[in-house]
Design a protein around this nucleic acid. Structure first.
Length: 848
RNA sequence: GCGGGCGUGAUGGAAUGGUAGACAUAUCGGACUUAAAAUCCGAAGGGCGUAUGCCCGUGUGGGUUCGAGUCCCACCGCCCGCACCA
């Protein structure tokens, strides 16, 4: 019988289903294991990248199941967000219909892949049962002081009438409307994540099983810096201007003060200074994207105000408003030291301000010209009559001494700042979780009563005009004030979708509960033992989730032990595919589907015209580049096991893997080979064979290697070992009993990757029960060591010969045999070796 | 600018400081076949050589070591993250 994946895969999926094998239940008699892949956004269809991601989680889930763990492996959908509204605007229809239709499609596409998922726990974040509990959490956070309202400057699209994220502003224009984006001050809700900066930073050190890269990215994002706040007295007697600096050691070179256009002093002065008012308005219009800021001109306006230099009171410094000074970092005011900061230097040269060194490099007393002198903090510099008396020290020591001196003289206060800012969660959108508060003329902002949750989204909304449909809904806003009962208005902002994904992992532990979590369940299942997802979530999603776990702990929804919710994190690579390009008459690229291209030895050509095609390997899949591989057609062509096997076989899981037709073909052929091997063994006659012991040895080595590979996310290496063992087994002349044992072990070792094929082999060999429920084989340590080993002999570090010796032979004996070797004798030429190194079981090195 | 990572055959990639290139793709040869496909067996880093073999070889240059793809230093190239952060 030929290998027929479509038939066996459906059959075994049903068998697992009937046995309720993947349904997770609390139990005390096994250790629990929670494996989770970042849940998908229901964009429409699953992508081959999803297949790889979930296969990794599935390998872990099935392996842990086989090694005696009680496994939780759930799946859900991150279902709120802009694309659903955009679709409604573009093609009509309703975001809700669009979203749920997509979810249905994607579940239907995922099920044939045979993942060991507990589908009974599935939910979408747009289910009222989910977002109602999220509103309940919000109210608890509000009561605990973890959420607050404040005015904030946001990117406002005046045409679409909504707030835009920074990445939605392109060249200063709204990405959809093309309108000039304004900086507008709005009252918004914020999570107090910045209160947890230090804790979130420190706890990173405990996350041993996270990639160092992710921890570092979070560390940089939190951005701790030690500096000082220095008040500058105003010559006119007004309130002092407080500047923040991390380089107070450059105070000698201070030649101006720059304050942010949003600084209160700027606003105050603007009232009587039209020029300044214009300057502020212009600054607000400025594009805030990185690229634009790089190019943007540093502009300033002298306010006419003068301050006293705190160290040299006879010096007066001008106060400028600078468009480059950020209001939301530090104090919104800085002192400029042109000699030691390139930006300050550019500014000073533009406006004719003084440039004066605070230090020189040792042995080089040249004054700064067009390039600022900015040494590393560990570099030694020579301070020029420094007020704290330091001379030649590292600039870090200079900074520390300066801060101490300022504090001792009561001229400033050492302070720690974080770059991390509070998390603004208000969105002027429809398709999100409504913020459950009510605005009452008499009572102000009043939380909705919990018994009125969920605050449901209305279905009767329209998307034919821009803006927030909730805002213009005729009746939805109207509600009695929860405090006084008088007519009041609901908040029409919804929550950032990152809120939805910040606690879904906890919800999976009790997805149907009528509280956000249930004590016994969340205590039993949390933490997530292994979390798997893309590096693109290294900062925001993971940081927000860490904050949420803490906030949920404070409000009694999460045990203390789960404030770091993800024990281990793995960031997987993408699936890429070559793109095939020709050029049109204007040299613009024209993309071609792989099936239209023929690969010849001389290069790639279009099948239809013979035109030469440029091949760009390993490109990210994209519909417009015509290099997307659809999992559904792959499953139809080759079966799920082949897809699963191939996406993990060729590259380490953290790296990208290129999908190639030949690779998929080869994977499929290999699985067929294993299947045929199973048939052949089943048909063998009983009786004696040759090399039973050798096959058993190879089998135990494979058990050992594959187990190690899966444990360490070395899936590609584990698969290579499985290839090797298949070759060994197919050449073996061992007895039927031993070959049967070998093929069944092979099936088990392959089962995390190719569960259907393994199950079928198990069945053919009359294995007990289901392969998916069988206990993982263990390697017999005694069979892992060989009786004899081949030792390479090096002469001066170069391999020159080999000897076969008993594995347990002692060093002296090995040395004796090595020295008697022909090649060694030749090299020694009758003399004595200078040194002989014997690494037992590894190598012999003779130094002559 | 700051921070991090990576550079190994034609290709994807293996390799606790110990025989570099496992495994796979592509390629070539052979068996089977009238033939092809499928299947099976085999070759294969580069150079010289009939061959035993010898020389070279993990981006470049140095260093540590009996021994370096692996550790250290410098450089080159590519990739990623952050960034008017004072």
């Amino acid at each position: 019988m030929p290998y027929s994946p479509s038939e066996i895969e459906a059959r075994w999926q049903k068998a697992w289903d009937d046995a309720a094998l993947f349904k997770a239940k609390r139990t005390a008699d096994k250790p629990k294991y929670y494996v989770l892949e970042m849940f998908p956004y229901p964009s429409g269809r699953i992508h081959i990248g999803h297949v790889r991601n979930y296969t990794m989680g599935d390998v872990i889930a099935r392996y842990k199941m086989a090694t005696g763990h009680n496994v939780l492996h759930p799946m859900g959908f991150d279902a709120f967000g802009m694309p659903a509204e955009n679709a409604a605007m573009a093609i009509g229809g309703h975001p809700k219909t669009w979203t749920y239709d997509n979810i249905d499609t994607m579940v239907e596409q995922m099920k044939p892949l045979g993942f060991a998922i507990d589908w009974s726990r599935m939910f979408a974040t747009c289910d009222p049962e989910y977002y109602g509990q999220q509103q309940s959490l919000f109210l608890d956070f509000l009561e605990a002081g973890l959420v607050y309202r404040k005015n904030a400057v946001v990117n406002w699209d005046p045409v679409d009438m909504t707030v835009l994220a920074n990445e939605q502003v392109i060249d200063g224009k709204g990405w959809r409307s093309g309108a000039d984006v304004e900086r507008r001050e709005l009252t918004q809700w914020f999570f107090k994540i910045s209160d947890y900066s230090e804790e979130l930073l420190e706890a990173l050190e405990t996350l041993d099983n996270w990639p160092a890269k992710v921890r570092l990215m979070q560390e940089n994002w939190i951005g701790k810096s030690r500096g000082i706040e220095i008040p500058f007295e105003r010559a006119d007697g007004g309130d002092p201007i407080i500047c923040y600096s991390t380089r107070p050691d450059t105070m000698r070179g201070a030649s101006f003060i720059a304050i942010s256009p949003e600084h209160p002093l700027s606003h105050a002065l603007a009232a009587e200074n039209a020029e300044l008012a214009d300057f502020i308005a212009e600054s607000r219009k400025m594009d805030t994207t990185e690229a634009a800021m790089e190019k943007a001109e540093k502009k300033g306006l002298d306010t006419g105000i003068r301050v006293k230099h705190p160290v040299y009171p006879d010096q007066e410094l001008p106060v400028w408003v600078g468009n480059f000074v950020l209001m939301d970092y530090g104090t919104g005011a800085v002192f400029g030291c042109p000699a030691h900061d390139q930006r300050d230097l550019d500014f000073a040269q533009k406006y004719g301000l003084e440039v004066r060194n605070a230090f020189h490099m040792p042995g080089d007393e040249t004054e700064v010209g067009t390039e600022a002198l900015v040494p590393a903090k560990t570099e030694k510099v020579v301070y020029i009559d420094h007020f704290a008396g330091v001379a030649e020290v590292t600039s870090q020591d200079g900074i520390d001494a300066t801060i101490d001196w300022f504090e001792a003289n009561d001229l400033g206060k050492g302070i720690v700042k974080y770059r991390l800012r509070d998390w603004g969660l208000s969105r002027q959108r429809y398709w999100g979780c409504p913020i459950p508060v009510v605005h009452c003329d008499d009572c102000g902002v009043v939380p909705e009563k919990k018994e009125n949750l969920p605050v449901r989204l209305p279905d009767d909304v329209s998307f034919d005009i821009p803006g927030n449909p909730l805002d213009r809904h005729p009746t939805w806003r109207n509600t009695p004030c929860p405090a006084c009962g008088k007519p009041a208005k609901r908040e029409t902002d919804t929550m950032d979708t990152f809120v939805d994904s910040s606690w879904y992992f906890a919800r999976f532990t009790a997805p149907q509960a009528d509280t956000p979590t249930v004590k016994e369940d969340v205590e039993y299942w949390m933490n997530v033992d292994q979390y798997i997802g893309g590096i693109e979530h290294a900062i925001l999603h993971l940081l927000y989730s860490r904050f949420f776990a803490r906030a949920m702990h404070i409000t009694g929804h999460m045990p203390k032990t789960a404030i770091e919710p993800f024990d281990a994190l793995f960031t997987q690579g993408m699936v890429t595919h070559a793109i095939y390009v020709t050029r049109d008459e204007n040299d613009r690229p024209v993309y071609h589907f792989p099936e239209d291209v023929e690969i010849h030895e001389s290069g790639a050509r279009l099948g239809a015209t013979g035109e030469e095609v440029e091949v760009v390997p390993s490109a990210k899949m994209s519909k417009s580049k015509k290099n997307v591989v659809d999992p559904v057609s792959i499953i139809q062509q080759y079966g799920a096991d082949t897809a699963r096997w191939f996406v993990l076989s060729d590259s380490p899981p953290e790296r990208d893997v290129e999908w190639t037709a030949s690779g998929a073909e080869a994977a499929s052929k290999h699985l067929a080979r294993v299947w045929n091997l199973c048939d052949r063994i089943a048909a063998m006659p009983d009786g004696e064979g040759a090399g039973d012991a050798d096959l058993q040895k190879a089998m135990h080595k494979t058990i050992h290697d594959v187990t190690l590979g899966i444990d360490s996310f070395g899936f590609n290496a584990a698969i290579a070992k499985l290839y090797g063992f298949t070759a060994t087994l197919s050449k073996s002349k061992a007895s039927k009993a031993v070959q049967r044992e070998a093929i069944m072990t092979l099936a088990q070792l392959m089962a995390p990757f190719t569960p259907h094929l393994s199950e079928d082999i198990w069945h053919h060999q009359k294995g007990e029960g289901l392969c998916a429920a069988a206990t993982w084989p263990t390697a017999d340590e005694s069979l892992l060591v060989d009786d004899t080993v081949t030792l390479p002999i090096q002469i001066n570090g170069k391999r020159r010969a080999e000897i076969d010796v008993p594995a347990d032979l002692d060093k002296a004996e090995v040395e004796k045999i090595a020295l008697a070797n022909e090649a060694v004798e030749k090299a020694l030429n009758g003399g004595q070796p200078k040194k002989v190194i014997v690494v037992p079981g590894r190598i012999v090195n003779v130094v002559v």
